[in-house]
């Protein structure tokens, strides 16, 4: 019996998509050990979607509600998760490897004195031991590790564990919460929202990325239009060269010194394909490349390539995609 705790993520009182991925990953681990999944939701009030988690395979949904937990606070959240883990015997605790999960999971690991396998893309149980595979060197290699301590802590890379419906009749439980009124010494004063509807390249199901082939920053307008044509499912990424040149924000950089992404569809436009860029996007499910140089390295990893002038191809492609979504 493998008991798995899935630590979920909400923003503004709604579960984030990555939470369903975490329940799905936790379910897979629990099933490998004929065990159970408990989902833990921390929030300032009712979190919408929490009562639906049985659909994705949660046997139990525990909510921890407190005014100080509405927004993520490192110390408040760490305390609640650690207390829950200490109160029960879990074999594994699973987090999302999101901005919040990457902050929270290491703190919980240090507090419990157990290791953390971060950014996991595959997991399972072999001979009673929990193992995890995680990309290293930005995906140029995969490291398979065995977690010897209990509970085993894992954070899951976004977009890898596609949510599957595994209906269970989930029991609901309310956890006791004991956190200071302010949530801790570090206080999140505000969250400055990015442009409305903007998706993060690490989480978007579709990424349209541009490189030096775009010639100047203003031409990224073409990629923004293409991304919009996908109907709110696409984010715009960038190569290191154009980020270093100041054309695009750091947050958009895909590659070994930026973000490693695994979208369903990655469209590389005017990107030649430096090794550190390829490392960051090679786990995409489908890669399309548009480049004028037929010998560009990007075509070696692209499933589908079009050789030619991006300034002619991209606007036409945008038009066609728009028609599909009309």
């Amino acid at each position: 019996m493998t008991a798995v705790l899935a630590v979920l993520e909400q923003r503004d009182g709604a579960l984030r998509k990555v939470s369903h991925e975490v329940v799905t990953g936790a379910r897979r681990l629990a099933d490998a050990g004929s065990g159970t999944v408990e989902a833990l939701v921390l929030g300032g009030g009712t979190v919408s979607g929490a009562d639906q988690l049985g659909r994705f395979g949660a046997d139990r949904v525990t909510t921890a509600t407190h005014a100080a937990l509405g927004r993520y606070t490192p110390e408040g959240y760490t305390r609640v998760v650690v207390e829950r883990v200490r109160a029960r015997q879990y074999d594994a605790v699973v987090f999302p490897a999101s901005a919040t999960g990457r902050d929270l999971a290491p703190r919980v690991a240090a507090r419990l004195g157990v290791p953390l396998a971060a950014d996991v893309t595959d997991l399972g149980i072999e001979g009673g031991a929990i193992w995890a595979t995680r990309p290293v060197y930005a995906g140029k290699a995969l490291l398979k590790v065995k977690l010897l301590a209990r509970p085993a802590l894992l954070s899951l890379r976004p977009n890898v564990f596609t949510p599957v419906e595994r209906p269970r009749a989930a029991a609901a439980e309310t956890a006791k919460v004991d956190v200071p009124e302010r949530g801790g010494r570090v206080v999140v004063r505000e969250i400055k929202a990015a442009a409305a509807g903007a998706l993060d390249v690490a989480e978007a199901p579709i990424v349209v990325s541009g490189g030096r082939g775009l010639k100047e920053p203003a031409n990224f307008r073409l990629l923004e239009e293409l991304a919009r044509a996908f109907g709110g499912k696409a984010a715009v990424g960038a190569s290191r060269a154009v980020v270093d040149a100041g054309w695009r924000p750091h947050a958009d950089q895909v590659g070994q010194t930026g973000k490693t992404v695994s979208p369903t569809l990655y469209v590389a436009v005017g990107i030649s394909g430096a090794i550190q860029h390829l490392a960051g996007m090679r786990t995409s499910k489908v890669i399309v490349a548009i480049n004028r140089d037929k010998d560009a390295p990007i075509f070696k990893v692209a499933d589908y390539g079009i050789v030619g002038d991006l300034f002619e191809i991209v606007p036409r492609l945008t038009e066609e995609i728009r028609k599909l979504h009309a």
């Binding site: 290791p115 290699a141 995969l142 398979k144 590790v145 065995k146």
Partner: peptide, 26 residues
């Protein structure tokens, strides 16, 4: 508490193909 079992190369991507040239390939 973490034991490395193996480091492996990432799975090869299927060989890609050039669909065509210019807007005609869209």
């Amino acid at each position: 508490g973490l034991e490395v079992l193996a480091m492996t190369p990432p799975p090869d991507r299927k060989d890609g193909r050039i669909v065509g040239e210019g807007v005609a390939a869209i």
